[in-house]
Design a protein around this nucleic acid. Structure first.
Lengths: 86, 86, 86, 86
DNA sequence: GTTGATCTTATTTCTC
DNA sequence: GAGAAATAAGATCAAC
């Protein structure tokens, strides 16, 4: 807050601030819930007899595959732009 | 996990595995989206003129407060139960 | 420092602390120098006419390749262990 | 950067590119090693009983001090030069 | 001069 | 619970 400490804010700004804090807190709550759901899936998988460590590695590897494909596309695009082809 | 590695699994187990991987990946995608929404809120707040560093501190402090209150409530409840009051 | 504030340290411990700080600072200095050398290489490459962005992407992609190969090996090993083969 | 993308480059340029990539990768490897050495020092310090969080703060503060001293010296020098004293 | 990218630090999460 | 790894946050720096 640049040039004003909190007591100098207008009511409208304070209201905006309240809403912002509220939105962030709600989204963080959502994020936490999703993280818990992921943990549950792993727990179920383990209970079913899957090797959680291996499962996590598979997920990670597939993620890397996706990342690498995307990266390769970006490199290609960069070169095409550099060559005046795009 | 290529076919060679899982050829000893039953088809039912393979299907279960596919579903598990799929569920986790979907949830991780969701988590990522929520994280992006949070970043957007911070970006908007910044554009509006809020000091995001201070904002983050506020969020953090409120989170600690909640944690402390919950902790206090748990202690209280434990005591009440121990006293046969709950 | 667990159970003691700084004034309660023995001289031997203080000396150990001095040496630790010194070692870390020396290594951080080294790290900084290497980082500067990397920047110089990029600057030279740019002066030579290379597209730095593309160059960085290439480096990143090659790094991902290496990471993915290592990860794939780890997955394989995990499965072999799980199968009692290693 | 596959062959198709760089087929318009001269062999000399390709060679230069290879050397550049190689130099950067070697330096990044060096940087990584130094970073690992730093982690080792912190690990040793922790094993010895030091509070690594406090230790990190000390390092940070000393770094700031050095930066401030250098800044002060630069200002001094600037003034001396402006006054024709240096 | 402000966003965008990169690099580093800090916190959290997972594994043993 | 300690160590390692992933994620998030902050700082820094270049580019437009």
């Amino acid at each position: 807050m640049d040039d004003a400490s909190i007591q100098h804010l207008t009511e409208a700004t304070r209201e905006k601030l309240r809403q912002t804090v509220s939105k962030i807190e709600r989204l963080e709550e959502e994020k936490k819930e999703v993280a818990e759901q992921i943990k549950e899936i792993y727990a179920e998988a383990k209970a079913f007899g899957f090797d959680t460590k291996a499962l996590r590695q598979v997920i990670k590897l597939r993620k890397q595959d996706r990342a690498e494909r995307e990266e390769a596309e970006m490199v290609l695009e960069t070169y095409l732009i550099a060559l005046g082809e795009a």
